[in-house]
Nucleic acid binder design. Structure first.
Lengths: 226, 226
DNA sequence: GTCTATAATAGGATAGAC
DNA sequence: GTCTATCCTATTATAGAC
């Protein structure tokens, strides 16, 4: 830790262009995180031995603990990165001034895309929430809940303006969240039902069609006879 | 084990009316299972020490292992019971000859009711599936998948007969499953968004309204202008 | 930054007395 | 059926040499 602080503080140029040490650290960290997210997604926090994370990342357990001093720190970092990615993709999608049907379509598409591209991220998060969010509840309260409430407020505005059907906006968001998220979290069961090893791009396309049809039924556009 | 076999085999009357020993065993087992489902739902298989299950059930670890010889046996039994309950509630709900709107309404209601009454059961199952169903995949394939495929076949029949909109039946089922199941699995996050300690009966009523509205939009009845 | 060594504890499971 | 005792392994974490 001290080493890096020295490096960046002693050499002003390295603040923008990171030095070799920082670069190496980031490479090792990202390798560790890549394996950690996989194991945490599969077995949860308590079920994942850092030893196994270290092995898969190609270093010793003790060496891993040089980068992440505790298991909790590693877990928290994994979830932080999950949220960073998710928030970046979903932020400011819901705009009250845009067409509700367009926004809802984009929202469903973005969330499904996250499920397809980052299923492990989705699963780690899901495991944490299902377990009661005992380790990460505070972060969810601070980073996720405000964003969801914002989206709900947009839905409510549309309802007030008569642009979508007068359903409960909160539960509408929950429904969209659930339908899209399940393509990451429950893909194992879905694959069994579909009789494939894993979900295909086409499965995601058909999922998007069905989900969009149901969600857009609440808009003028979705209701064929309006 | 031998003791019980002796009892039931030596006394024919006790086959119908269980003796004291069997009764006691069942009481202890159900106490263990009640605590086990809670802990497995919170921390998953690897994250749950049988020692803690035993403590909460009021017996020693060794004594628990008299009833469930291995941790895996306990886990499997928990999931078996979860499936028994769920299958009993959902079996033969989907009848191709009944009105699609009625069936879909009943389906959503039954599944939401399960989420409300047995959230821990739902969460244990969800944890297993999210983790890749490594321990219980075979049972899911044998007991769950056939039932889901049967439901999907009913949906497809309705589509063929023009009784519901021509959407992908499999993904329609996934959507219904996801929306209803999430009220057990993601209740922690939902409660945070709603600003309550836990979901209320009214929350479930509003959920049912929104979900039903979206699903029934695919039927003639749901489409207001048909 | 990486290694060896080791602490300190917890975990699943078994044996045998009562 | 329940208890005491014990085995053996795994696990998080720390100390200190290089």
């Amino acid at each position: 830790m001290t080493i890096i602080i020295n490096e960046t503080s002693l050499d002003p140029a390295s603040a923008a262009l990171p030095g070799k040490r920082v670069q190496h650290r980031e490479e090792v960290e990202s390798t560790i995180l890549r394996e950690a997210v996989r194991l945490f997604a599969e077995r949860g926090f308590e079920g994942t031995p850092i030893q196994e994370v270290a092995e898969r990342a190609g270093l010793s357990k003790q060496n891993l603990m040089y980068y992440f001093p505790t298991k909790q720190a590693l877990y928290k970092r994994v979830l932080d990165d999950v949220l960073d990615d998710w928030l970046a993709r979903m932020a400011s999608l819901a705009d009250p001034d845009r067409d509700p049907a367009d926004v809802l379509r984009a929202y469903v598409a973005a969330k499904l895309r996250f499920s397809r591209e980052q299923p492990l991220a989705s699963r780690v998060y899901a495991m944490e929430v299902i377990g009661g969010a005992t380790m990460y509840g505070e972060q969810i309260r601070e980073r996720v809940v405000p964003l969801l409430r914002q989206d709900i407020a947009v839905f409510e505005r549309w309802i007030a303006d008569g642009r979508i059907a007068p359903v409960n906006a909160t539960h509408l968001l929950f429904a969209v969240w659930a339908m899209t998220q399940s393509y990451a979290d429950f893909s194992a069961q879905m694959a069994l039902v579909l009789g494939r090893a894993e979900l295909t791009a086409q499965d995601f396309e058909e999922a998007e069609r069905v989900i969009t049809a149901m969600v857009l039924s609440l808009t003028d556009q979705g209701n064929k006879h309006a």
